[in-house]
């Protein structure tokens, strides 16, 4: 596992993430594959190149916070947290199992390293505003990151929080929209268009940046610029591909929550992965 940035090693890590996430979800029998795979490079960049944290002390006051407002992307976060030492990788295979600490949707009371509970869409950005206000009141220097979905941006509460953060110039807050252009019922342009999305956020008094959410250089340069930006909160629109790397569902609405009926389905999804040959970080029967 790479500690410093190395393109080849990071590509390999992203491939391993997709392999493990897909295996976890297939073993569970169902799960939100598409939105987890679209965020792989974003989450790796945050946890390997941007965020400050202490996996031995998940509540360390000086850490950067992350709210996964699209809480159904829990699986990609769990792999990152396990690989960064918050809990044993062995535990990854327990996702959605009875008594697990890794529920389908992010839960701060269950999983070491999860800062906020989410799953009922639209609420996480408000919590992130609370984190950012808290940091301001206590004059702390950590940053707050919040990942929201594009479909999630249909929720009115997102825009309540957007107005609040803009009004209060919460420049310790960086939000990222996972703009994979798909929501459950179809393409966002057909179900509920978000465009002009960048202009919307600008109109709410945010600084807006855009990036290719699968390009290591663009990810690092953009998020680094966003955290350094002062005077406004920053929205980064991450252009991504839903279910990236799993050809049978890539860029299809069906990737949102896949059902894995049996061994044939299991094989179908695993064989469709672009990157192969990884060893699972947990024992399987």
């Amino acid at each position: 596992m790479p500690e410093e940035f190395d393109r080849e090693a990071f590509d390999d890590l992203a491939g391993e993430f997709r392999y493990v996430i897909t295996d976890m979800i297939c073993r569970a029998g169902s799960g939100h594959l598409g939105g987890a795979l679209s965020l792989v490079e974003t989450i790796i960049t945050l946890y390997w190149r941007i965020m400050r944290f202490d996996s031995a002390n998940p509540h360390w006051e000086g850490r950067d916070r992350l709210v996964m407002s699209k809480g159904h992307a829990g699986p990609v976060l769990y792999v990152a947290l396990a690989y960064r030492g918050f809990f044993p990788k062995q535990e990854l295979k327990t996702i959605n199992a009875d008594g697990t600490r890794l529920p389908s949707h992010a839960d701060r009371l269950q999983t070491p390293g999860i800062d906020m509970t989410a799953g009922s869409l639209g609420q996480g950005l408000s919590a992130a505003c609370g984190f950012a206000m808290g940091g301001r009141i206590r004059k702390q220097s950590h940053d707050v990151y919040c990942v929201i979905g594009d479909g999630e941006s249909d929720e009115g509460m997102i825009w309540e929080a957007a107005m609040f953060a803009g009004h209060n110039k919460l420049d310790n807050l960086v939000a990222i929209t996972d703009y994979n252009r798909l929501q459950i019922d179809g393409f966002t342009d057909e179900i509920m268009t978000l465009e002009p999305l960048a202009d919307k956020w600008r109109a709410f008094n945010w600084e807006v940046m855009e990036m290719d959410g699968h390009d290591w250089d663009d990810l690092h340069t953009t998020i680094d610029a966003a955290r350094a930006f002062r005077g406004k909160p920053v929205m980064i629109i991450a252009h991504t591909t839903k279910a990236r790397g799993c050809s049978v569902v890539q860029d299809l609405p069906e990737s949102h929550n896949i059902k894995v009926g049996g061994p044939e389905d299991f094989e179908k999804f695993m064989c469709a992965l672009e990157c192969q040959g990884y060893e699972l970080p947990y024992e399987v029967q």
């Binding site: 709210v67 701060r108 800062d115 906020m116 609420q123 996480g124 950005l125 408000s126 919590a127 992130a128 505003c129 609370g130 984190f131 950012a132 206000m133 808290g134 940091g135 009141i137 009115g156 509460m157 309540e160 929080a161 107005m163 609040f164 009004h167």
Partner: peptide, 25 residues
């Protein structure tokens, strides 16, 4: 410095409260 007004946005008030509470406020 510890008074926050969200405007007419009650859900946001609750969500911001939740974030602050998780931070120990």
């Amino acid at each position: 410095e510890r008074f926050i007004d969200t405007g007419v946005a009650e859900a946001n008030m609750i969500g911001i409260g939740a974030g602050l509470a998780v931070e120990g406020f």
